[in-house]
Every structure is written in structure tokens, then in C-alpha cells.
């Protein structure tokens, strides 16, 4: 391929759409009970620090997965809606363009990755992120004895001044791909990899898979007529599809 062709190719926006995978997730809000098992699972899987009471009060908690609560109506007719919020792995992520040092970029799996040891902590990505799912290490957090023994060896711990975020448990994806390679398969099969949050969800509200594969469970779920994307008007084209909660007329039931 000539130089000109290379340049022409790289002049195209979104030229990297043809990926091996396009990891995505669906969140069925009708099934979500707000139990926060996913939050705890994420905490355990990804070595999220426990920031302590005072830092928590300062809104500095680190929860890659969080359950947002929205109240509808007034008491006593109030309804509580939960929206699990985590990195939407946007295809056109505002945060990626913001980083001056390429600490965050779009990888070949359609994931929005964060390279912790490249991050210099300008926090621009967190400002640019409309979903506010980027968390900053305000201090170097430590684990008291013997809690450090439960740290996941596949995931690094982050030092002060580093931005961190959900990457769909990239260590698990890595592992699944390695196993697939061992089996002489080019592709990971649907269901072979599940992030910690989806794995721990008791109601299976979270479904994870490859959106490139039309037969995968997640693709089918994503085509559900209830599907919508959070802050769609921001044109970030997220990889996470939320399935609307169905509010029935309760008196009629």
C-alpha cells in the first residue's frame, strides 16, 4: 500500500469501525432491583480502593459501577428508578480526544481503555465525559492488613494522580481471548467472557457480549424496542444499551 493510500485511510473519521469485536452491554432497567451487587463485584474484581469516610463525604469515592437513583413523583406516590451507570465505551468518546498523552484511546475491541501508567492527571477526560464515569485517585490509597491479600493479581493498583475507569473487565476479555487462541479459535464465543458486574447480577439485568456478532445475546437484547442510550443527544455512540423500565398502570393489574 502506498503512502498516499495510508494517509487517505487515516484521513477517514471512524475508519476503525471494522473491529474483531465490539464489546457491548445491555442493561435491562426493568430487571434492575438496585441491589448494588454489581458495584461490590466491580470493587472486588478491579482493586478499587476504599477511600474512607471523609473522602467519601467529599464525593471522592471510586465506583466504576454505580447505581444512580432517580425519584419520580411525590411521596406517597413516589417511584424509584435505578440506572446502573458505568463507562459507556463510546465509539466517539469525548474523553479520548481530550487526553494530551494518549493515556486513553480506543482499542481494537471497541473498548475505551485507560492506560494508568501513562496518565499524567490533567483530569480533562473526566470533564469531557458526559456520563461522569471517570474516577480520579486523589491520594494513593492503601489496603489495611489483610485486605491487600484479596487484591486481584490481574489488575494493577493505581497511584495518586491517575484517572481510572471501567474497561469491561479487560483482564477477563484478555484471558478469554488467550483461551480461545489456545483452542485454535479466532474468536471468543458468546458467553465465554463476562465482566464481574454482569456475572454477579442476580436478575441478569446486565448482559455482556460482542455487538459485532448479530447472533450474540447482547445484540438481540440491544435490538429490543425498549432500547435507548443515555444522553443520546451527545452523539457519543455508546456501546451500552439501556432497556427502558416498563411502568404499567398498577391499578389495572
Amino acid at each position: 500500500m502506498s503512502v498516499l493510500d495510508t494517509i487517505r485511510k487515516y484521513r477517514e473519521a471512524g475508519y476503525y469501525k471494522e473491529f474483531d469485536y465490539h464489546w457491548g452491554m445491555t442493561v435491562d432497567l426493568d430487571r434492575c432491583t438496585g441491589c448494588e451487587a454489581c458495584v461490590v463485584a466491580c470493587q472486588a474484581e478491579n482493586n478499587l480502593p476504599i477511600v474512607g469516610e471523609s473522602s467519601f463525604a467529599q464525593r471522592r469515592e471510586i465506583k466504576w459501577m454505580r447505581i444512580e437513583r432517580y425519584w419520580e413523583g411525590e411521596y406517597p406516590n413516589a417511584k424509584l428508578n435505578f440506572i446502573p451507570m458505568f463507562c459507556q465505551q463510546c465509539d466517539e468518546a469525548p474523553c479520548e480526544t481530550a487526553c494530551p498523552v494518549f493515556a486513553t484511546y480506543h482499542n481494537q475491541d471497541g473498548l475505551n481503555t485507560q492506560i494508568y501508567n501513562r496518565c499524567i492527571g490533567t483530569r480533562t477526560c473526566a470533564v469531557y465525559c458526559p456520563y461522569e464515569v471517570r474516577y480520579f485517585n486523589w491520594f494513593t490509597y492503601t489496603w489495611d492488613e489483610p485486605l491487600e491479600r484479596q487484591l486481584n493479581p490481574d489488575v494493577s493498583v493505581r497511584e495518586k494522580g491517575v484517572m481510572e475507569k471501567c474497561t469491561f473487565c479487560i483482564q477477563r476479555i484478555r484471558q478469554a481471548k488467550d483461551l480461545a487462541k489456545d483452542d485454535d479459535r479466532r474468536k471468543v464465543r458468546d458467553g465465554e467472557v463476562t465482566p464481574a458486574c454482569a456475572q454477579s447480577c442476580p436478575t441478569e439485568a446486565l448482559v455482556f457480549g460482542d455487538l459485532n456478532d448479530p447472533e450474540s445475546r447482547v445484540s438481540k437484547m440491544a435490538n429490543d424496542p425498549r432500547g435507548y442510550q443515555v444522553l443520546e443527544e451527545q452523539n457519543t455512540s455508546p456501546s451500552v444499551v439501556y432497556l427502558q423500565k416498563v411502568h404499567g398502570d398498577e391499578e389495572a393489574i
Binding site: 480526544t97 481530550a98 487526553c99 494530551p100 498523552v101 494518549f102 490533567t122 480533562t124
Partner: peptide, 8 residues
């Protein structure tokens, strides 16, 4: 560095 970044 990422010259597409406003910080750059």
C-alpha cells in the same frame, strides 16, 4: 503526545 487534544 496526542496533537488532537485541546490540552496539547
Amino acid at each position: 503526545p496526542n496533537f488532537r487534544s485541546p490540552i496539547m
